[in-house]
Write a protein that binds this DNA or RNA. Sequence first.
DNA 1: ATAAAATAGAACGGAACCGAAATAAAACCG
DNA 2: CGGTTTTATTTCGGTTCCGTTCTATTTTAT
Lengths: 116, 116
Amino acid sequence: MAINLDESQSLQLWHSAAMAQVLDNVPDLTLRQTAIILTIYLQRPPHTVRGLAATLNVTKPVITRALDTMGMMKLVTRKRDPSDRRNVIIQRTVDGSLYLEKLAEIISTSAGELRL
Amino acid sequence: MAINLDESQSLQLWHSAAMAQVLDNVPDLTLRQTAIILTIYLQRPPHTVRGLAATLNVTKPVITRALDTMGMMKLVTRKRDPSDRRNVIIQRTVDGSLYLEKLAEIISTSAGELRL
DNA sequence: ATAAAATAGAACGGAACCGAAATAAAACCG
DNA sequence: CGGTTTTATTTCGGTTCCGTTCTATTTTAT
């Protein structure tokens, strides 16, 4: 079963989900940070700074800074790759999983409220 | 027909849409700004600073600053309410409509790419 | 007319982000 | 070994955003 959203429904969904996040005072990530954390949690590991930078087509400092911020929020952690100590492996956390679970619930609920 | 998205699909949709926006170098609005512009374009006018602040449960300076930014981007315009000159009426623009049309297309496309 | 209330914006200090360039550490290669 | 490449981070100057507080303008009420 394919999901088909027309443009009006798409905007309603985005609006509802954005409103819910603003009202919930959810710690708000930038669009880039959102793309990064979702890539980390949805795509197969391992994830490195270089890999994420390539995937998002941004410079590495952008990734480093986003990881700093999300690291302080406990949404991700970093670890040196033992086999090549230049690399940093980005890992998931319990808090990160909870954050995304909550986000998923907001989106899912917003979708359920869509009216034609 | 009701739209039902499970949590995995919700995150995939959000990921895909966030990625598309990052890759397109779309001018990235904060979550609050996104909620504001969508409220302006999806809900019935008139929109005032006070009304938007109440709707989003934020202070008025937050709205003023968001309108400053989005005004410079030509996504919205402001006009004094002639009948009560304390009020500012926020209005849509052609550029704002185009911006949202593009956003809608990104989300719609992302939804279409969802697989189970 | 004068005082009070309401609306929007400005000012301020602090925090986060950006792009670009410079730095540090590790691995590779001749 | 010594030099080069690769990886990640730090630094720099500039911009934007935030919350709080203060100000200016307009309307309403006494």
